[in-house]
Amino acid sequence: MDVQKALLNGVITENPTFRLVLGMCPTLAVTTAAENGLAMGLATTAVLVGSNLLISLLRGFIPSKVRIPAYIVVIATLVTAVDLLMKAYLPALSSALGLYIPLIVVNCIIFARAESFASKNPPIASILDGIGIGFGFTLALILLASVRELLGAGSVFGVNILGPDYPKALIFVMAPGGFFSLGLLLAGVNRFLDYLHRRTGGLI
């Protein structure tokens, strides 16, 4: 398992948003602006790497029958600790990302990777998997958020692209618009990835 393989896996083959369809709730909530998508993606990646590492280190100790509560406790403790430390020592960063940190606990991606990867693989591989999946998640968030921000506010990352007269389709920065955009993107991205798969003879 090397970095390149982990990245390819996380961005394409097992993209958590478009392939695994995990973490839909925070995805829909956060992607109202590209900037928020980026922030949430990075925060989730950090937590994912940390939790993957911890679960991997503890994989011999956690009994399989109670692995679900055990994983949740580990993840929640990690996230809460990170949240408190950020509030205390990195206030600027905390007020920018602060809303998202508690949301990460309920992000299924963290739990799914703990269950399907970290509990069965050594620490280094788990870290790499965390980085790869986290990166894939971040890209997916940025893509969805850019679409929603563009249609709903005329800008991407705060930069106004469609001009001041663009009639903003407000629904896209609200929940229903999130569902529409995500649904259509799911269809489109998967169509494209299937095409890539056929064209590269199964490489991707």
Binding site: P167, L170, F172
Partner: peptide, 10 residues
């Protein structure tokens, strides 16, 4: 309903 959510003012 879609239009109402997109452009409520209009």
């Amino acid at each position: 309903a879609f239009l109402l959510a997109c452009w409520p003012a209009a």
